[in-house]
Design a protein around this nucleic acid. Structure first.
Length: 381
DNA sequence: AAATGAGACAACCGCCATACC
DNA sequence: TGGTATGGCGGTTGTCTCATT
């Protein structure tokens, strides 16, 4: 019997009993130390039994050997497979190569828009549970989805000002400062004279405060909109799946019912970006700000996650319980905790107050909306 | 044409859960 | 019941390709 532990013990005995080896400090034998440490930890490191095992990219010949063997015998024990198949690889490497690349049911090629939508929506609920996400995308591996997310989707969301972790508008300082600068550029323009420093600083602070309030409001709107979309679409349906679609093509994915406006807060008077009061109003008003495209339903603020849970249960592949990885940031978890809407109300009150204040001295929000509309570059998806 | 950087993808690493003895 | 083997998972790194300078 030559288990890794037995081998490690034999190595130590060899060191102790050999007059030649014993004359050297044990630290000169890193392999022995490593072996012993791993033995003390109760587990041998993967593939440590043979340092000569090949690593790195697989050759077509190796692939062929692996495929041939599995087609004939099945994979059985992955640890035993390499020797049986004549491969100089560790079992784990073989397993990964098979599951991520060689498996016959793997669907290769570019992700479709539909797949992207499903991934984004599932990620908003599950977080980085790639294997769980992969179960809803036949033929796609968790590794492939993970790579796709990290190289494409994540960057796109960031460019759109959406935090890929929380699926809400970014609130990090850099982004906020950018927004503030844009706002200043829009509103102050060439107004500033070099000797107006004091006034400029004051204006900056005011702009920043407003921008921050705006960000907070956007966060709430987005989280509710996202929850609405998920619950309305059963999460995995082909319709109304994409919470950010309004940002991409300027059209809303929400149904007319979802667009039902709320009586509060007041619409912005004489403001092209005002939130429409009725569905027909919505159709009539050209909203220059994509994030408000489709308006929003304040009644939905009272929505608990019951409808989402129901929709999840109704799906063919019911999703698991919400992950605990980011309990504070998950939009769903936030919805769960939204029994008391006081903080939101406070923000809306502040928003309302600002609107009223701004009516007196020219419409600040109108300028934001106009500027955002005119300066927003088309986003390629 | 060579160097360099970025993007995409494959593969590896370490940890964890579970099955098995 | 505890130790070990195994497989799964998520994060990270390595490698290749292609565009740009």
């Amino acid at each position: 019997m030559s288990s890794p532990q037995n081998i490690q013990i034999k190595l130590l005995l060899l060191y102790q009993q050999s007059p030649f080896l014993s004359q050297f400090d044990i630290r000169f034998f890193p392999w022995l130390i490593i072996s012993f440490v791993s033995a003390a930890m109760g587990r041998s490191p993967c593939c440590a039994e043979d340092a000569n095992l090949k690593k790195g990219p697989w050759t077509p010949e190796e692939d062929q050997k692996l495929v041939d063997y599995i087609n004939k015998h099945g994979h059985g024990s992955w640890r035993a497979l390499p020797k049986l198949a004549g491969l100089n690889r560790c079992g784990k490497s073989c397993r990964l190569r098979w599951t991520n690349y060689l498996r016959p049911d793997i669907k290769r090629g570019k992700f479709t828009e539909e797949e992207e939508r499903v991934i984004i929506n599932l990620h908003s609920v599950l977080g980085n549970k790639w294997s769980r996400i992969a179960t809803h995308l036949p033929g796609r591996t968790d590794n492939e989805i993970k790579n796709f997310w990290n190289t494409r989707v994540r960057k796109k969301l960031l460019n759109m000002g959406i935090d890929p972790h929380t699926h809400k508008p970014r609130t990090d300082l850099d982004h906020l400062l950018n927004l503030s600068q844009l706002l200043c550029a829009a509103q102050l323009g060439n107004l500033m004279n070099p000797w107006d420093t004091a006034f400029k600083l004051q204006a900056d602070a005011a702009q920043l405060a407003k921008a921050q309030l705006l960000q907070n409001l956007m966060q709430i709107l987005n989280s509710n909109k996202l929850a609405n979309v998920e619950s309305a679409s059963g999460l995995l349906g082909s319709q109304n799946l994409y919470p950010f679609e309004g940002l991409l093509n300027g059209t809303s994915t929400l149904s007319a019912k979802e667009l039902t406006p709320s009586p509060t807060p007041q619409n912005l008077p004489n403001n092209p970006g005002a939130i429409p009061q009725t569905s027909s109003d919505h159709q009539a008003v050209e909203n220059p700000w994509p994030y408000f495209q489709g308006g929003f339903n304040y009644e939905s603020l009272d929505m608990n996650n019951q409808s989402l849970s129901n929709s999840l249960e109704q799906t063919e592949n019911p999703l698991p319980e919400l992950v605990s990885g980011s309990p504070d940031t998950s939009p769903i978890n936030q919805m769960e905790n939204k029994t008391d809407t006081a903080p939101d109300s406070t923000i809306y009150e502040a928003w309302e107050k600002l609107i009223i204040e701004d009516e007196a001295d020219g419409s600040y929000w109108k300028e934001i909306l106009d500027f955002t509309s005119s300066s927003s570059s088309p986003i390629s998806w």
